[in-house]
């Protein structure tokens, strides 16, 4: 019973998120980070390309984290810009995760600025095809990405063109398949 109640409680929030994703302006209570997100989107649009940003929203569940989805071809350029930009200086890559959404892949980069006083988190997502997933490597921008991208390549099978040494890292070299994919079937189910 309590479980049911819990779910219904959460629904309005979900709805709110939906609205937010579609029309940013019409939120009843604008998030404190909304301005930051807008600035970020402007910066990317003006410096990289008008269609570089696929989507931008505030992740309310995660303490109003500004999140943007960048189109894959623009990613490397955007990454360089984010790191070099005077206002952002996102020089610290704290985490890279790869997610298999069954119809597409997504790689999520959590960035942080270590040099400005206001250590603002930013979340950047890049989507990749399910069939032939490929996302430009940002190892040249943040060295942290090196092993993280190898791990994602190993476990999810996403290619990172431009990576200096894209080899399996967790699994043996001769492993078949990419275990973290949702449709992964081990060759030998006993193992």
């Amino acid at each position: 019973m309590s479980d049911q109640k819990h779910v219904t409680e959460m629904d309005p929030k979900e709805a709110k998120k939906e609205i937010e994703e579609n029309e940013v302006v019409e939120i009843v209570e604008p998030s404190p980070n909304q301005a930051k997100l807008d600035r970020l989107v402007d910066l990317v649009k003006s410096n990289i390309a008008e269609d570089a940003v696929e989507e931008a929203y505030i992740n309310e569940l995660d303490r109003d984290l500004p999140s943007i989805v960048i189109r894959s071809p623009y990613w490397l350029k955007t990454a360089m810009m984010l790191k070099e930009s005077e206002t952002l200086k996102l020089n610290y890559l704290r985490n890279v995760s790869g997610i298999d959404y069954e119809t597409y892949f997504e790689v999520v980069y959590y960035l942080l600025s270590m040099s400005t006083d206001n250590q603002q988190d930013i979340c950047i997502k890049i989507k990749a095809d399910r069939e032939d997933p490929s996302i430009p490597s940002v190892t040249s921008v943040w060295n942290t990405a090196n092993w993280n991208e190898r791990e994602i390549y190993d476990l999810l099978g996403i290619q990172f063109p431009g990576h200096p040494n894209l080899k399996r890292i967790m699994m043996p070299e001769d492993w078949e398949g990419h275990p973290l994919r949702k449709d992964y079937e081990p060759i030998d189910p006993e193992v």
């Binding site: 998120k17 992740n59 569940l61 984290l65 995760s97």
Partner: peptide, 9 residues
């Protein structure tokens, strides 16, 4: 059953 969404802590 946490609500749909994602979080990084």
């Amino acid at each position: 059953r946490p609500p749909e969404g994602e979080v990084y802590t």
